[in-house]
Design a protein around this nucleic acid. Structure first.
Length: 426
RNA sequence: GGUGAGGUGGCUGAGUGGUCGAAAGCGGCGGUUUGCUAAACCGUUGUACUGGUUAACUCCGGUACCGAGGGUUCGAAUCCCUCCCUCACCGCCA
């Protein structure tokens, strides 16, 4: 959510910034200006009436305590009371409308974010490693997985429908190893506190991190309860501190956590459907930071490096891409994607998305801190995948495959697999 | 799921339908005393919205907030209803 005061004072600048995303984004703020003006006028009116009522009611109290008659004042206030009730009702409706509209306005892009309407305008900022050359045609994971008997798409579909995978045998163990490897890396080397949160959250948590109300159709809602399956650990981890005022000494809050992620992918049917590039449920280790405003952009750079460390340790070639204004997610002010090379698929796949949301999420969840002067300010929140498992597994299998059909395991991961050096189907 | 007890400011904890935004204590902040620390004493102390004012939440006002939402009343922390949460016990259960 954007700062209402800032929006009021810098309306045209904000609108221009939003227009860098899309015309639709810019149009979303238009109704806010007029609604806000009406809201304030109405509130002033109601406040004045309430003041009148408070003053007279106190006089009634004084009169009664002295045993004097107050029936006239009481009668006149009855009418005022009815007026207040009616206007209060209008005010509540107006506020609800205003909030509803405000929740649909995306974040303004940071000045360092390049212009552009879509992925074509994204800017590659660096690469690590290079695409390996193979003296055979590298297979895609949807062939490798079943051959090695570690991925089972058909049986998964039998129990859950399309868009699900079952990890079998060493595949299941590989998932567990990767999760543990990443959690160890981030908690021991990068200073994040490991958190294992609930996988089911209330609607207000989903509103807090910006999944709702706009992206409802992408979420799995529980039928008989008011909760949702989490689409990412970002939701529970960031909301953990909602409605709190943190002390400066407690910042930065750095959390890492493993959760499964549940996504309906309602809008992307038919895209990237092959194998497990896009599935309804995948595992992910997420990194979340809650920081002071002045430090959030430095923390973003560090966050990206922390996520990159995973891929480097697993000897996977990747590139870091700075997203342009039109390609960024709803909440982000600035976002880097990390894309890993997958020789079987024949392209780069996004395994991490690292964003600074500035105050956008924190304002929605009323997450604040006391700064050095003791002033209460809205926190900046950040998160990044560290990293997403389904695609990481794809990259791992496809990159480290050999002509004989085996997949070599990078040295960093072997301790987590009992020293195993290869995946093979024997 | 059932029964009972509770939910009050950063924390502990009072609170009679009308000088209650709320006693008191702790903590925090400022000051005095002191070689330093400590102690003592004095003062101060929330959040949001909003009108005016300003270089500035700078100053002066207003409104709201005692778990949440309704209701009764001229007036609700206080009375009534619904819901949520916490704790205890019972039931069920990995």
């Amino acid at each position: 959510m954007l700062d209402p005061k800032l929006l009021r004072e810098n309306f045209s600048a904000t609108r221009t910034a939003l227009a860098r995303r899309s015309a639709e984004a810019a149009a979303a703020v238009d109704p806010l200006q007029e609604l806000d003006a009406r809201r304030r006028a109405l509130q002033t009116q109601v406040d004045n009436l309430k003041n009148q009522r408070n003053v007279v009611s106190k006089e009634v109290g004084h009169l009664k305590s002295k045993g004097q008659d107050a029936t006239e004042k009481i009668a006149s206030m009855k009418a005022v009371g009815e007026q207040i009730a009616a206007l209060d009702q209008q005010l509540r409706e107006l506020e609800a409308e205003l909030e509803q509209k405000a929740l649909f306005v995306p974040n303004t892009p940071h000045s360092s974010v390049p212009d552009g309407a879509d992925a074509a305008a994204n800017r590659e900022v660096r690469r690590w490693g290079e695409a390996l050359k193979y003296d055979f045609k590298p297979k895609p994971h949807w062939e490798l997985g079943p051959q090695l008997k570690i991925l089972d798409f058909e049986r998964a579909a039998k129990i859950s429908g399309s868009g699900f995978v079952c990890h079998w045998g060493l595949g299941a163990r590989l998932q567990r190893a990767l999760i543990q490897f990443m959690l160890d890396l981030h908690s021991r080397k990068h200073g994040y506190t490991e958190v294992s949160p609930p996988f089911v959250v209330l609607e207000k948590a989903m509103v807090g991190t910006g999944q709702l109300p706009k992206f409802r159709e992408d979420m799995y809602a529980l039928k008989d309860d008011p909760q949702f399956l989490i689409p990412t650990a970002e939701v529970p981890l960031t909301n953990l501190f909602r409605e709190e005022i943190l002390k400066l000494a407690d910042l930065p809050v750095k959390m890492c956590g493993y959760t499964p992620c549940f996504r309906r992918e309602a809008g992307s049917a038919g895209k990237d459907t092959r194998g497990m590039i896009r599935v309804h449920q995948f595992d992910k280790v997420e990194l979340v930071k809650i920081v002071e405003q002045e430090k959030s952009y430095d923390e973003l750079e560090a966050l990206v490096r922390d996520a990159e460390a995973v891929l480097q340790a697993l000897e996977l070639h990747y590139r870091v891409v700075l997203l342009c204004a039109g390609d960024m997610g709803f909440c982000a002010a600035k976002c880097y994607d990390i894309e890993v090379w997958c020789p079987g698929v024949g392209g780069y796949l996004e395994v991490s998305s690292c964003s600074n949301f500035e105050t956008f999420q924190a304002r929605r969840m009323n997450l604040r801190y006391k700064d050095a002067e003791g002033k209460t300010r809205i926190c900046h929140t950040l998160n990044g995948s560290g990293t997403a498992l389904a695609r990481l597994t794809i990259a791992l299998l496809e990159t480290h495959q050999q002509a004989d059909g085996k997949v070599s395991i990078p040295a960093a991961l072997r301790p987590y697999l009992g020293g195993l050096e290869f995946l093979s189907n024997s």
